[in-house]
Simulated assay, not measured.
Amino acid sequence: MSQKITLLGAGSWGTALAILAARNGCQVLLWGHTPEHIAGLAKERKNQRYLPDLSFPENVAVTSDLKKAAEYSDLILVALPSHAFKSTLIDLKPHASVKGIKIAWATKGFNPEDGSLLHQVVAEVFSPETPAAILSGPTFAHEVAANLPTAITVASTQPQFANQLADILHSDRFRAYTSSDIVGVEVGGAVKNVLAIAAGIADGLGFGANTRAALITRGLSEIMRLGIKLGGKQETFIGLAGLGDLVLTCTDNQSRNRRFGLALGLGRSRSSIIDEIGQEIEGISTAKETYLLAKRHGIDMPITEQTYKVLYENLNPLSAVQNLLARDQKAES
């Protein structure tokens, strides 16, 4: 029998993963929390809001019933915003077969309650023994759904689960590498969104390619300092889930975080940009969580700090760049 997967989150990324898994022969149940949205998916057999040109394979079903979603499969793949991650797992737990459940996620962010990593949330809601994995890397939803060549990292402390998930997702157009460094992959996937906002701001201010390259490179150093402090491995941050995702998100306007920063740099108001984009912009909340984590652990993250001040202390974006340039001269490493 083909593998059954419950996929939580009917946004662009959840829909793309549902299409990918179904294309690979899985039976997929895609859950979303809004009944009206799910009714539209069922009727049109596509996600008209986020991926309007891509139809669902016949082995994708949809539901807004979380109990039905929990009972469909013991393999749960979560593609929800980080702020909804913990609450949805809590709501899921009473309906799930807790003993055999496996939780994977494509969410990029921290738990906004306390800045904890999402694998820690899974351990708290279920148990430390629950198989847990993250998939992350340089991926835009539309390109994955359109079957364009893509590579990601699947990380878990339980190699058997990482291999199982990689086998499910892997195809001739989607290459899945495995890793045991779940912390490094989580940190890389979260913090790159903050740096994408910074890169967008710099481009909006008209600072050009030199500035963007410097922000990406020094931003990678910030990711590595925090990630290694939290237990991640250096090699992870120069791989797909680190450098790869950072470059993608900082340089292409498919990135909502980059587009948000770009519009800020052009002088637009935060609220008007959020309304126009109309989807989750993870880097906004992650900027605060990353800033607080860096302070707590004594990690120097100047780009993150200035981005936080632009978003939460109303610092002028040009002043933020000037603050970075005015820092004391020092050795690169």
Score class of each variant (00 low, 15 high):
30 L>A: 13
323 N>S: 15
25 G>R: 00
107 T>Q: 00
265 G>S: 09
166 A>M: 02
205 L>S: 07
135 L>Q: 12
319 S>G: 09
165 L>P: 07
74 D>R: 11
101 I>K: 13
315 L>P: 12
136 S>I: 08
236 T>A: 10
122 V>H: 10
87 S>H: 09
52 P>F: 11
134 I>M: 10
57 P>S: 09
250 C>K: 00
154 V>P: 02
51 L>G: 05
288 K>H: 08
137 G>S: 06
189 G>D: 05
206 G>D: 00
270 R>P: 04
87 S>N: 09
242 G>P: 02
53 D>Q: 07
210 N>R: 00
312 Y>S: 07
317 P>N: 11
294 A>W: 08
144 V>L: 14
72 Y>E: 04
166 A>T: 01
297 H>A: 14
202 A>G: 14
134 I>N: 03
57 P>C: 08
240 L>K: 03
237 F>N: 11
21 A>F: 13
288 K>I: 01
286 T>V: 06
283 G>K: 00
225 R>G: 08
312 Y>A: 09
143 E>T: 02
248 L>S: 06
253 N>S: 14
78 V>A: 13
301 M>Q: 07
286 T>H: 03
231 G>K: 01
1 M>E: 09
242 G>W: 00
165 L>Q: 04
70 A>Y: 10
227 G>Q: 08
307 T>I: 11
224 M>V: 15
45 R>P: 13
149 P>L: 04
255 S>Q: 00
60 V>P: 02
